[in-house]
Computed example of a mutant assay.
Amino acid sequence: MDVIGIRVNAVDIKVDPSVFAMSRDGRAGFVIDSGYEFTSLSNVAFDVLKNTLYEILGTPITYAGFEICYQFGTVWRSKPKPVIGIMFRGWLFELDERNVWGKMDNKNMRLECLLVHRSPGIKLSVLGAAQLFNVNVGHDLNNNLLYLQPMKCPTSVDP
């Protein structure tokens, strides 16, 4: 599973693919872990994503550990939510916007925050459970293939 980049609104953002390359000790690279609540990106990848969203949406608000939040309803009136995708070698996995932006209640205002965090002091990026909601994850051991297929689970509740 080779992750080679991140795409926002059909444009590859400038993250060197080596940022996602697995290290021998497993402390750097990209993994899928449903035990992580939210996706986390290494500092390098997160900063590029944050700057890209800043250019598209304007200055974000930080709230409760989320670095990229916007006042609910204000930004989205004039601009659509950016489509974020993870680029694997040979295919693109676009994240469902319902799995990427979450509503937060602050005392003074309602916010919508990017459900992606900065990896805390490590170079490992993790695709977490919130972004895999309504996604069928499969691994073909015989052919060493990974499948991420968006689907609507009949008994699911939107996040």
Rank of each mutant, 00 (worst) to 15 (best):
L41A: 03
T74M: 08
F72I: 01
H139G: 00
I122F: 07
R77H: 07
K123H: 10
L92C: 01
L114A: 11
Y54M: 09
Q131K: 08
S78T: 07
R7G: 13
D12Y: 09
R110N: 12
R98K: 15
S119T: 15
M104S: 01
G121N: 14
H117S: 13
Q149N: 14
K50I: 00
W76Y: 03
V135R: 02
T62A: 15
D47H: 05
L132C: 07
N51R: 13
A64W: 03
K103A: 13
P82G: 02
Y63G: 01
R98N: 14
A21P: 03
R77L: 12
P80I: 02
P17W: 00
R98A: 10
A130M: 14
V83M: 05
E97A: 08
H139S: 07
K103T: 06
G35I: 09
L127S: 06
G58A: 07
D158H: 08
D96E: 13
G90M: 01
T155Y: 14
E55D: 13
L95E: 02
V48D: 02
N144L: 07
R110D: 06
Q149L: 12
T74E: 13
V44Y: 03
N136V: 12
V83F: 02
G90A: 03
P17C: 01
V3G: 13
P80L: 05
A10W: 05
S18E: 15
G26L: 11
T59P: 10
L111I: 05
G102F: 03
N134S: 13
M104D: 00
V11G: 00
A130Y: 15
E112R: 08
K103M: 10
S40D: 01
E97S: 14
K103C: 03
G90H: 01
N9Y: 11
E55N: 14
R77G: 05
V126S: 11
K107P: 04
R24Q: 13
P60G: 13
L145Y: 03
N43W: 00
A28T: 02
L124H: 11
S119P: 07
N144S: 13
S18R: 14
F66S: 04
E67V: 00
V157Y: 08
V137T: 15
L95G: 01
F38K: 06
P80R: 11
K107A: 06
D12K: 14
K107T: 01
L53R: 03
V157M: 10
I122G: 14
L127C: 08
T39Y: 05
R24M: 05
G58F: 07
N43R: 11
V135L: 05
C153M: 11
G128A: 12
C153G: 00
C153Y: 13
L124K: 07
P60L: 08
S156D: 13
Q71A: 12
Y70H: 05
G58R: 06
